[in-house]
């Protein structure tokens, strides 16, 4: 049986994400949560952690494009519907701040700590995502 390369690269990229979360925790003593890092900067609640959050974002935005030439093409397949983008963005922004975490904070960091809130949040957003996908794509046909 041939293992699809996408799965192998998924695992490799996943290990890199885990290593990044490991560095941020072991060296900086912080939980790598993308929504907390962005949200803390956006609403001014970051306080003294603002500088390292900003440094994290700088690395996240500026460094990966250097790898892009290694790829034949990098596609993000972003929807062209402004209505969907704005609605989805608002839901993700409000939702991750209410839940106090997203795929990185609750997902990667919470599950690996066996944190009940992280595990429950992950199960809920996965289920909500699957239901939304089923309805929006297969019933309504809007995405």
């Amino acid at each position: 049986m041939v293992v699809p390369m996408d799965w192998v690269w998924g695992l490799v990229g996943g290990l890199m994400i885990g290593a990044a979360a490991g560095v941020y925790l072991l060296v900086n003593g912080r939980i790598l949560g993308a929504s907390g890092i962005i949200g803390g900067l956006a609403d001014g609640t970051a306080g003294p952690t603002g500088r390292e959050k900003l440094a994290f974002l700088l690395g996240l935005v500026a460094v990966p494009p250097l790898l892009v030439p290694l790829y034949a093409s990098v596609s993000t397949n972003v929807t062209a519907s402004p209505v969907v983008l704005i609605l989805a963005g608002l839901l993700v922004g409000v939702g991750t701040r209410l839940a106090n975490g997203c795929t990185s904070g609750h997902g990667v960091c919470g599950i690996s700590r066996f944190a009940p809130r992280g595990i429950v949040s992950t199960l809920i957003y996965l289920a909500a995502g699957a239901v939304t996908m089923a309805v929006a794509r297969h019933v309504l046909g809007v995405i």
Binding site: A34, S35, I38, L57, L60, V61, A62, P64, P65, T76, N77, V78, T79, V84, L85, L87, A88, G89, L90, L91, V92, G93, V94, G95, T96, R97, L98, A99, N100, C102, T103, S104, H106, R117, V120, S121, T122, I124, Y125, L126, A127, A128, G129, A130, V131, T132, M133, A136, I143
Partner: peptide
């Protein structure tokens, strides 16, 4: 926690973005 997770999951499905990749997509 529960309402937030439901909202996040719905938005994640609609656009295929969660906060980390959304920021990365800036590039």
């Amino acid at each position: 926690l529960i309402t937030g997770s439901v909202m996040f999951g719905a938005g994640w499905a609609l656009a295929g973005f969660c906060p980390g990749p959304a920021l990365a997509s800036f590039a």
